[in-house]
């Protein structure tokens, strides 16, 4: 049973990578790429929100920091592509660390508000700074070649994005099942009890916040080379909220839910384009309805029905 699952999973992951890449259809590749980037973001925010019980509205800002850093270091300064991605992730993590340190000492929603201030403040920097190219941003970016393989075609680059998403997914599973990960879940359930049993709450919270910001930074760097254009419009509060909606729609309790949420939101958003202003009404309503009726997201439907099937069968 377990073997069959593993095989099926691997086959599915391979299919999700290969089918769009070989489709030869620019639109499918584009949407699949956006979904892969969304999945990385949603997995990152999912760990923070679903697992550590904290909320960040600055994920788009971390993503932007990663994007600009990667472009400035690789395209403009000629640093190795992967090193520039890592540098972007590191800078994003640093920003998170600086904001997380004071606010994660406080109980409740302070991180949410502080990160919202951070998001808007950093957006302002993106718009006004010289190095970011101001509101026009930076264009003329060309996708890199890595290990001698050119990733210039969107299909080839999509394979890189999908592999990165798989890597981020695996990292999330590792974090969640690690000792600090389990401790964080304990913190989420009961902060006082967790501190009594000797969990260093603040250290764990700050670490997880920093790590998830680094993942967002990595996703941002990858995004910059997907679109081959960076500008502040791509890194604003709307994107932070879109990622949040992926997490809650898919399900905040598992990385899997985040991935499903990312795929669904990316595709549905494409379908809603032509609805005009109404799409935002739909957007607001589905957030409310999910919070009210499906607090653990769409994966909870699978879970429940799967359990029912099992129970009926046994």
């Amino acid at each position: 049973m377990a073997h069959r699952n593993t095989t099926l999973t691997l086959a599915a992951v391979a299919a999700a990578i290969v089918i769009p890449a070989l489709s030869g259809n620019g639109y499918v590749i584009q949407v699949a790429s956006l979904a892969a980037i969304g999945a990385m973001m949603a997995v990152s925010l999912g760990i923070l929100y679903g697992h550590a019980g904290q909320l960040s509205f600055a994920h788009a800002a971390f993503y932007g920091i990663g994007a600009y850093t990667a472009v400035v270091l690789h395209t403009q300064r000629g640093l190795d592509f992967f090193l520039s991605l890592l540098a972007g992730a590191a800078l994003a993590g640093l920003a998170a660390f600086v904001v997380g340190l004071p606010t994660l000492r406080l109980r409740g929603n302070y991180l949410a508000i502080a990160t919202m201030a951070l998001q808007l403040g950093i957006s302002e920097v993106f718009v006004n700074a010289k190095i970011t190219g101001g509101s026009v941003g930076i264009f003329g970016i060309v996708r890199p070649a890595v290990f001698g393989i050119s990733l210039e075609s969107p299909a080839a680059y999509y394979v890189l994005l999908a592999l990165a998403a798989v890597l981020v997914f695996a990292l999330a599973q590792f974090i969640v099942h690690s000792r600090p990960g389990r401790a964080l879940a304990a913190v989420r359930e009961d902060e006082t009890a967790a501190s009594v049993i000797g969990v260093d709450i603040i250290r764990y919270k700050v670490s997880i916040f920093t790590i998830t910001a680094m993942i967002a930074g990595l996703a941002g760097g990858l995004f910059a080379y997907q679109l081959e254009y960076v500008s502040p419009e791509s890194f604003n509060l709307d994107w932070s909220i879109a990622v949040l909606s992926m997490v809650i729609i898919g399900g905040k309790r598992s990385a899997l839910g985040a991935v499903i949420g990312a795929v669904i939101v990316t595709i549905v958003t494409q379908l809603l384009f032509s609805m005009g202003e109404l799409q935002f009404l739909v957007y607001g309503l589905w957030i409310i309805l999910i919070m009210l009726f499906l607090p653990d997201g769409l994966v909870s439907i699978w879970r429940t029905s799967y359990r029912k099937v099992r129970e009926a069968g046994s």
């Binding site: 019980g53 909320l55 935002f280 607001g284 957030i287 409310i288 919070m291 607090p295």
Partner: peptide, 16 residues
């Protein structure tokens, strides 16, 4: 935090 997110949805609805 869950309630806060729901109020975000309400904000979208009111604005639109």
């Amino acid at each position: 935090i869950a309630i806060m997110i729901a109020t975000f949805g309400a904000a979208y609805v009111i604005r639109t």
